[in-house]
Design a binder for these strands. Structure first.
Lengths: 135, 135
DNA sequence: TAATTTCACTTGCATTATGCAAGTAGAATC
DNA sequence: GATTCTACTTGCATAATGCAAGTGAAATTA
């Protein structure tokens, strides 16, 4: 589906976001790209939540069609493809940080280290800059 | 399902959030509660995205089970139920604002008024305070 | 007081999405 | 020439969603 043809249920901003990544997998792929430095198809398959291969292929295609990620050929190995975030994808970082803060607060078994939350509270802007620099 | 019995695919904070409201409808209900002052079952049915009755009933139950909303009887009319956000639900506001800002930036047909984004950029904290005061 | 309306769901059934296991195609390596 | 690696695709079972209609209890109207 071409972007220009995409139809939305509404242009409410919450709905717009949910239509692009409001499923159980898309944001986990974004997470792997931003926070875990993953970039290959095979790497996304190894994440703890165990996405299945057909769903991964489908989501990568949708994320690319919606302009959140790009797919290019790896120079070092013509058989491998590199997935990377576009600026539109990177711009999800502030939202993701708030999501992380919320989950860390309400999930008593959260994986989020306390230092990360502390850093966010102390200076969110520089944390975002650091994370972007790491991409 | 009791909260204590709930099993998560992982305790990654992004995944935790997605398991609680990572579907096409849950956040729209939260939106209606926070931004549109809705509180009755019938009101949620009138939203532009046209949620169906069985899905609405299911999501209200799940959101209540996960501690994001409460369900009480309306004093003025014993036949009506009032749905309201818990503090845990209200705490989603910062994340929702970032989501709104992102969608407003990338959806050229966004419903979000420019003044809202401007207000957010100028003083996010007081915007959040105002919105909470309005609940 | 009997019938109608209001409200909050529930049910049945068709369609769509997801999950799992296995298979494939092309390039690189052995 | 055969095996391996990588990125998928396919088939099929199960689960989630969408749509229309129905239900039951309380309140309102006739």
């Amino acid at each position: 589906m071409k972007r220009s043809e995409r139809k939305y249920r509404s242009h409410c901003p919450i709905n717009f976001a949910q239509e692009l990544f409001g499923d159980k997998w898309s944001l986990l792929i974004i997470r792997d790209l931003i926070f875990k430095g993953k970039k290959y198809y095979g790497e996304f398959l190894t994440s703890g939540e165990k996405i299945s291969t057909n769903i991964l292929a489908d989501r990568l295609e949708k994320l690319e069609a919606d302009g959140l990620i790009t797919k290019t050929i790896d120079n070092k190995n013509n058989v491998k493809k590199i997935y990377a975030l576009t600026p539109k994808g990177v711009d999800l970082l502030p939202m993701l940080l708030e999501m992380i803060a919320w989950s860390a607060k309400y999930d008593d078994k959260t994986d989020t280290p306390a230092e990360f939350i502390q850093k966010m509270e102390e200076d969110k802007a520089s944390l975002i800059r650091e994370l972007i620099a790491g991409l």
